[in-house]
Design a protein around this nucleic acid. Sequence first.
DNA 1: TTAAAAATTGTCATATAGTGGAATTTATAA
DNA 2: TTATAAATTCCACTATATGACAATTTTTAA
Lengths: 296, 296
Amino acid sequence: MFEEYGTTLRMIRKQKGITLKRLAEGICSVSFLSKFERGDSDITLGLMTRLLEKLMMNFDEFLYIHHDFQPDKLEQFFQTARTAYFNRDDNQLKELKNGQLKKWKQYGVETYHYNALLIEVYESIVDEHYKNNSVQEYDIHHLSDYLFRVEVWGYYELTLYNGTLLLLEPDMVIMLSRTAYEKSARFRDYKKVHDAITSVLFNTIIYFLGPVNRFHEEFPFQKEFNEFISYLEIIAIPESNLTDRVHLLQLKGAYDIRTGSKDEGIAKMNKAIQLLNDLNSTKMANNIEQYLLQIM
Amino acid sequence: MFEEYGTTLRMIRKQKGITLKRLAEGICSVSFLSKFERGDSDITLGLMTRLLEKLMMNFDEFLYIHHDFQPDKLEQFFQTARTAYFNRDDNQLKELKNGQLKKWKQYGVETYHYNALLIEVYESIVDEHYKNNSVQEYDIHHLSDYLFRVEVWGYYELTLYNGTLLLLEPDMVIMLSRTAYEKSARFRDYKKVHDAITSVLFNTIIYFLGPVNRFHEEFPFQKEFNEFISYLEIIAIPESNLTDRVHLLQLKGAYDIRTGSKDEGIAKMNKAIQLLNDLNSTKMANNIEQYLLQIM
DNA sequence: TTAAAAATTGTCATATAGTGGAATTTATAA
DNA sequence: TTATAAATTCCACTATATGACAATTTTTAA
């Protein structure tokens, strides 16, 4: 049986005060639209597209309403995974992982496998005494293989990579992040994907800076740092995106400190902290403050 | 004939390295998927939903790719209208309007009429010697009637209202903006609509502040100003949305000046300007500076 | 190469998406 | 109320989306 999209459509149509006959005109027959709206028939993608267009509504919004104001399954998956990760809820992580593994075995579709891998990465960070301690090298290799193969990176690939990059080797991160930047180029005007690209670039830079307890060591990634900063500057941050700009300022400050220009770096980070406090974004300000303290 | 969605699906499937048989498993027959992917058949909405889910892709992104990386028709409409408005291109405005009027007459669907109205509002602002000088009162009434009637405001209603509110009477704006705020509540986790709500609230506040050349007059909208500011503060601006926070700071400054607390107001606006300059958002900083100069 | 396996396409049968128009219900107006 | 029109549903029918399985092409592996 099919989902009863029609009833949702009818609700929307009624709200807009459009009669069934008028909506159908030029698209399909009145009798069929009636049948569909009552939930007595599924509908062809082509017809649905044209009906929604006439109702001034896009597919995403329609499905959001239809699913009782819940995001789509893919976003729900990433969202719950992230939430479980932030809450260090290893039970939920395990449950999520098993769900994906089950689907992988059932259908043999690799993407479910990658999803399980993403969660495994989360698990290994949350639980330090993780059985395997590190995620199977074979699996990681499998995932990066996939990412290299895909020709256009969309929301899925970017979000997947974003969650796993912390566990990859530097060489791999350099190549994959560059690939991510290049192969998502066509999506740059599509907000959701654009945000995902930006996020990948930020995480890449954070990766190269390394954990705070190693800030006294030599910094071998100057070239890479500048490469990814330049991607961000040239393409990703419009003047109006102040949040990302503050974030960038913070990272540049950390870079200065990392490479010896302590005073400059501290000045930048303090400026970022001050900006955030001026705008009452105190939690974000505190985070940077903490970070700065740990570095010093 | 139908659009050949199938070929796009095939491309995506191949990229992900998933075999036709595996994608079809549990959803539809192999032979049908093959036929669909070759463009020899349309497909039911129900099947398509499940196929895309398995490919880890949402509808919006799929259609974006299918339409050669162009946004959907609705967004295109609003986008081109706004662009023509900013460029003061009255030829394009006229063309757009006629397109919508034509569809209105052809189908009798009122939404096309509202779209034409939106553009008429733009025209009347761009061309001061506009024939009717002001948009027909009857039409405006018709539009606000619609907005009052709709029970859930989505992206369309919010964007439509956002573009026309400047020409409405204060009483109407108070009621409609409040309605917009309340009746879009269920969408607050849906980014696109959330942004549209925020934008409506900002424009409402700007409306009440009035044009710069009347800043010396009495300010009769204290209550309303505070009402809409509170909506913004409570619900609309998460800590991470610095751009909106700066914008809010600017408006609070303008409010102070408008209501007599000059020094306080100037201080706030200067702070906003400084914040923007610190982040190299010079165009935005200049805009505020211009605004401040005109007020004084 | 070549044989075997895997993946895709073609053929035909059937379920169901979709149509035209009559019948029914609902809204409108006197 | 009652008559009239408008909107929706019902019904018989057609077109096409979808399935089962055989035929063909492509890939894999020796």
